[in-house]
């Protein structure tokens, strides 16, 4: 079976998971449905032969699930009942379907998946192991050819954590200030 059909199956699972996560009442079930979506993304990366991404996605999904479960379990979630008129919903669905069919010629004219290899990536693929000595081509790109990008990512992570720590510390201090009164 070609990869595309496997991807369509995983996409279907993702769609189902997100619909369940949106519609279900129980908060724990909704979180687990979000987890299904994340794990399906991980499986999709595996089908696309990107094990590095699949591992990171899988682990991060577990991490996010643990945080979500700890944050929301035992708390009362107020469910907003969003009432949309059925005519509007039908119109929106119709517009989306029309949009999709308008773009079918574009989908037809797309080249096959990963077919025209860019000159940069073909250089990485052919010369990467000799130039960097790394057996894992992803590591050689992320940490050698594109190390500058990685530095930016680490900086973003550092700044994000710094911001989160600062904001949370501020809110904790205001809570402590309120307590004695």
């Amino acid at each position: 079976m070609p990869i595309e059909s496997w991807l369509i199956y995983t996409l279907g699972i993702m769609l189902l998971g997100s619909i369940v996560a949106l519609e279900i009442r129980d908060i724990l079930s909704a979180i687990i449905a979000i987890g299904i979506v994340g794990l399906a993304v991980s499986a999709a990366f595996l089908f696309l032969q990107a094990p590095d991404l699949a591992i990171v996605q899988f682990l991060f999904e577990i991490f996010a699930l643990v945080i979500l479960v700890r944050a929301f379990i035992g708390k009362k979630a107020h469910a907003d009942t969003l009432s949309i008129h059925k005519v509007y919903a039908f119109l929106v669905a119709l517009a989306l379907v029309a949009f999709f069919f308008l773009f079918t010629p574009v989908f037809r004219s797309l080249p096959p998946f990963g077919e025209p290899l860019l000159t940069t990536s073909s250089h990485y693929l052919t010369h990467g192991p000799q130039e960097t000595g790394a057996a894992n081509i992803v590591a050689s790109i992320v940490l050698d050819y594109r190390a500058y990008d990685t530095m930016g990512e680490v900086t973003v992570l550092f700044t994000a954590i710094l911001g989160a720590l600062t904001v949370l510390r501020m809110s904790r201090q205001t809570q402590k200030g309120r307590e004695p009164k």
């Binding site: 991490f63 790394a134 057996a135 590591a139 050689s140 940490l143 050698d144 990685t150 992570l157 949370l168």
Partner: peptide, 27 residues
Amino acid sequence: SSGTIPLFNIIIGIKVALSLFLVVWVL
């Protein structure tokens, strides 16, 4: 092998591990 790549990997590993854990800790 491969020069500085393992060193960068180790540094990023420490960074990611500690920052993710500290976020959970503060939360």
